[in-house]
Every structure is written in structure tokens, then in C-alpha cells.
Write a protein that binds this DNA or RNA. Structure first.
Lengths: 330, 330
DNA sequence: TTGAAAGCGCTAACAA
DNA sequence: TTGTTAGCGCTTTCAA
């Protein structure tokens, strides 16, 4: 009932451990004949090398860490789920596995524990903040890592959607449709993703020589009440279109407008810088930017594996997007 | 820059490896004095034992596997997220970590890979099906495991919400409010959770000698269109109250009713056997059963750790619930 | 109370 | 092309 070891196989086949090891790894010279003999035996007996022993011998765990935010308002977002799907799939193909770390706000102890315990060969950081403590930790510890999102630190290997370009394009399309008075409702500006989205939005206005009305820009909204207040203000200030920085904000905005019986797009237009199922349930289909988080996760994982193998990788990979024009901005 | 090993410490302190090991683990006799000397040194130099070496020596990975459904309609549900939160937290406290496996439908290869590779000491299965292939796999391989959900196999260690009792109680309350013609709209009856919810519902009616009208029971609905058709039928057949088997179904039902301008609770009542943020965004607050998935995850993890340590644990733990009576059943 | 030594299962440098 | 051997860092048996 005990599992086969490389030693058992060696004895069984009358060769040495080294030979078996070589047949498996493909490293070092070995005759075609013996290799096949070993491989056959392995397949027939479903032998799997012990990853602990293998890991101990060459200082690898064959695990990567997925570090995602742990506060439940954020954890619930489909985005991180979808990323994870791509990550796990890519890892599995390479016979790697994914370990979870939850990051609570700016706290680094959870991630530090995993790194200090040497439980993983690398880390995928699920989102980035301005002056990110966990990025600092990772750099300090010398752990290989990539981030999903952008970083101001050019050393950091980043995989991100091209938020700047996407937000600029969406905004520009709406300008071309004749809108001028945009209200932007956004969340925490410590999040790099919000910073880049804001940048794209601003640059579209700039390119068309439109001065954004600062009375229509509402940032750093955390709670639903704040968002709803922003909606009230936007309407009071005669906004033509409300741009929502993400899907959760947009869901709240649309909900509030419906409760107040404000017609979309009749009385006000609405667009979102991020689309998700959260917006499926609303009456009027919402114009939004669409990304592919699963692809993001897959790319991040693939890149991290390259890094752990010492290969050169691009510092920044920007994935594409789609603009979904719907009824909410007609 | 290299990490300390137990050998380094031994030399540094002029004792043997064994002594250091004993000081750390607390196993075996050792004088108070030397133990303190070792412990102090460890704390000061932030020594952490290499988990791979430790693992190799005593056949442990210090990792547990969280096996959750991988199809994105389900992955997106907050439920599994919340479970994971509880699991990760409990694991971390015990210096364990969580490895992810995605289960696609009835497919067992993902989980089999992780088990055959011996990457984890035990598995938490996130949901159960009737004749669950993954349960069979786990039993077959002899891997320690617990399930979140119920199983018809009494050998399986189960941690579940008390769906039967909860659904019975909610249904009974509505009966007492005077409702008789219940329409039940449910999902896949291969899922144990749906089976148990149905059971609770039926037993409430039985207890009150109400014969459920089979024309009002719509099970195995997968797609939104099927659910919407069920709603049409429920109304056509003069249902007084629609019972939704889960939050996603309920969101679809409420949405459909709104589009059709059917008033809740005026023209029809609605209740859900599971509450989640999905139901926050609807106009009328929905009567629903509330559970604590995080607690479920924490309990499952704690129980699995007990199992891996060879302790005796209860075969079935049922967690409590809350009945939230809201405007939708007034 | 402490230590020497073997062993967990694999890799890799070196020798043959 | 193949084998011998030492070593990865820890646990544990046995002896002192």
C-alpha cells in the first residue's frame, strides 16, 4: 500500500536511482532504451515523485501564492474569482499549485507568514495600492512576484488591463456623441486601478479641450450612502452622464436612480469603467468597459512561472478590452 | 544571506540538532535552561523551520486543499468566497495553508492530480452532489476529508447548515401567516443542498396537512429563461408565494416580476432559502434564510485539522441559521 | 538530559 | 551511458 519511491523503481528495474531520476527529468545523458523502460514502468505503476523530497533537494515548493484582498466587500467581486480561475488552470498545466493568502487592508503579516515559512516559489499580488506595503515586503524579501494591476515602481512586473487607454476611448466616444458634462463617481484613490482609470478619463477630456467641472468629480467614496449622495449632487449640478469607476459603484448608482425614478438614458446617461454580472440585473443595459480577468490571471501566472525559472519577462503587459455600448448612453 | 538551519543553531549554541529539535517541538525531555536558550536564539534570529524538510521527515505538507466548483456561474457566488475566508483564517492560525482545486462539473481529474501528487494533508470539499464522484475518489484514495454540505454516505464527515430545519421553519411561518399555495422554484436536484432544502419545505407542508400542488413545483432549472418560465407558470397557477431555492434564483425571479410589473407583496409574495448581497439590490427587501458561510468554512477547517491529527470528530455538524422576515412576505 | 546516526525521497557532482 | 555518494533540513530511535 506504500507509495513507490525512486529507489523501489531502481531496484525493480536493476538500475540506479540516478538513472531513474534522469529518465524522469530528461536531464543528463541516458540511452533511449533504458529511458523507455523506466517510463513504461512509471506509467504502469502510476508512480509520482514525492514533491516534498523533490522540493527539498532543489529548494522548490511547486506552489505559487495568490494574494487577494480579504475584506468581504471586495472578496465578493467576481473579478478576483475569475482571475483565480485563470491562475489555477495555468498552474495546473505546469504541475504547480496555488496557495491562498488573504490580505487585510494594508496588513502584511499574512503574506509575510507564508513567505517566511517558505511555502511558495512566487507570489501573484491581486491588486496594487499606492505605496503598496506588500509590494515593499516582496521586494525586501527577494521573493519572485508579479502584480495584477499597475505599480508606480518600474521594477515591478505588472500585468494589467489597459485602463488608461480603455477609459480614454470610452470617454471619447461619449464626447463624440455630444456629451460634455461628465460626472465621475469613484472609489478609493489609493487603489492604483482607480488612479489609472481616472487618468484615462482626464486625458480624453484634455484631448478635446474640455475642462472637467470639479463639482462633478466625486472620488474616494467608500459606502453606498456616499455614492448615493454623489448621485444627488451630479443631478443637481446638471451632469449629462455619470461615469462609474467600477461595477459595484455602478450598481449602486443605477439602483439609486431607479428608486428616484430618474430615467436612463432619458434624463441622465450612465457608463461604467468595469462590467460584470452585477450589471446584468439592471433594467437598462449599461455601457461599460469589458475585460477578461481570467486571461489576466492566466497571463500573470505564466509570467510568474517564467520569472521563477529565471527567464527574462516584460516589465509591463497590458491586456486589451472591449467597449460595450448599450442603451444607457444612447 | 542564507537561512538558518537547525544545524546552524546547534553549532552556534554548542548543542546537538536533536536538542534544538526537541526545544522547538516540545517533544522529549529537555532541561528548562537549554530549552529557553534555544527558544531565545530562535526568536532573536527569526528562525523558521523549513516546512519541506519537516514535511519530508514526517510525511506532512502542512497544506489543506479547498476544492470548490470551477464553473464561473457558481464560482461567482459569494458563498464560496465567504467559506474560503473562514478556512484560510483557521488554517493560518494553525500554521497551515490552503491550496485551491477547481472542480469542473463531475470531473475528478483536478482533485486527483493534487492528491496523487501528495500536495496536501487533507481536503475540504465545497459542495456535495448526489453520488458525488469526488467523494468517491477521496474515499478510494484514503485521503482525510470533510465536506461542506450533506452526504447520503454516513461515513462522510459533514459540516452543513441545517437546511432542513431552516426551510421547514421558514415555510411554517409563512403557512401561519395564511399562505397555502406555495410555488417552489429550484435548481439542480443533483445538488445535495437542494435536496435537503426541498425536504425541509415538504415536511413543513406535511406537518400542516397541506398537499403541495405539483403544478407549482419547478425544479432543475438551470438557465434564467427556465426560471422566468417557472415564474410565469406560478402566477398563472395562482401561487400565493414563490419560494426560491437560492439567492441567484431569487434575484432572477424578483427581476422578472419587476419587469412584468407584478407587485411584491401585493400580488405575490416571495421568499428565498438563501440570502446574499445579490438580494440587497432589489426594491422590496426579501424574506430569506441567513447563514454564516465563513463560520461554516472555519468549522470545516478546524474539523479537518482534527481529523488529520487522528482525533475523533462528529460525523455531522449542523450550523444554525436566522430567519429574516422582510417586506416581500408581508 | 543529551547526542550520534539513520532515514524521509529526491537531485547532482563526480567517478567509472 | 551508468552508478556511487553526499546532501537538502528535519525527526526519531537508540545509546550514553
Amino acid at each position: 500500500m506504500k507509495e513507490y519511491t525512486i529507489d523501489d523503481i531502481a531496484k525493480e528495474l536493476g538500475v540506479s536511482k540516478t538513472t531513474v531520476s534522469r529518465a524522469i527529468s530528461g536531464k543528463g545523458r541516458i540511452s533511449e532504451a533504458t529511458r523507455n523502460r523506466v517510463r513504461e514502468f512509471i506509467n504502469e505503476n502510476k508512480y509520482r515523485p514525492n514533491p516534498l523530497a523533490k522540493g527539498l533537494a532543489n529548494s522548490k515548493t511547486y506552489n505559487l501564492c495568490w494574494a487577494m484582498p480579504g475584506d468581504s466587500t471586495i472578496t465578493d467581486l467576481p473579478f478576483f474569482q475569475r482571475c483565480l480561475l485563470g491562475i489555477v488552470e495555468t498552474a495546473a498545466v505546469n504541475d504547480y499549485d496555488i496557495l491562498i493568502s488573504m490580505i487585510y487592508e494594508e496588513n502584511t503579516i499574512q503574506l509575510a507568514r507564508i513567505i517566511d515559512n517558505r511555502k511558495v516559489d512566487g507570489v501573484i499580488l491581486g491588486r496594487t495600492l499606492k505605496d503598496d506595503k506588500n509590494v515593499a515586503l516582496l521586494k525586501d524579501k527577494g521573493t519572485p512576484f508579479v502584480v495584477i494591476g499597475s505599480s508606480e515602481d518600474a521594477d515591478v512586473i505588472q500585468i494589467d488591463n489597459d485602463h488608461i487607454k480603455a477609459c480614454r476611448e470610452l470617454t471619447d466616444i461619449l464626447i463624440m456623441k455630444g456629451m460634455r458634462r461628465f460626472s465621475l463617481i469613484g472609489g478609493d484613490m489609493n487603489h492604483m486601478v482607480n488612479i489609472t482609470r481616472y487618468e484615462g478619463f482626464k486625458s480624453a477630456l484634455q484631448d478635446r479641450n474640455i475642462n472637467p467641472d470639479q463639482n462633478l468629480i466625486y472620488l474616494n467614496n467608500e459606502k453606498d450612502e456616499e455614492i448615493e449622495r454623489a448621485v444627488d449632487n451630479a443631478i443637481m449640478n446638471n451632469a449629462e452622464c455619470i461615469m462609474c469607476m467600477d461595477d459595484r459603484i455602478c450598481a449602486t448608482v443605477v439602483n439609486k436612480l431607479r428608486r428616484d425614478s430618474v430615467m436612463i438614458p432619458g434624463e441622465i446617461r450612465v457608463a461604467s469603467f468595469y462590467n460584470s454580472r452585477l450589471l446584468d440585473e439592471v433594467r437598462t443595459p449599461i455601457t461599460a468597459l469589458q475585460y477578461d480577468p481570467k486571461e489576466l490571471g492566466a497571463t500573470a501566472c505564466r509570467t510568474l512561472l517564467e520569472v521563477t525559472e529565471g527567464h527574462e519577462v516584460p516589465k509591463k503587459q497590458l491586456l486589451s478590452y472591449e467597449v460595450l455600448l448599450k442603451g444607457s448612453t444612447r
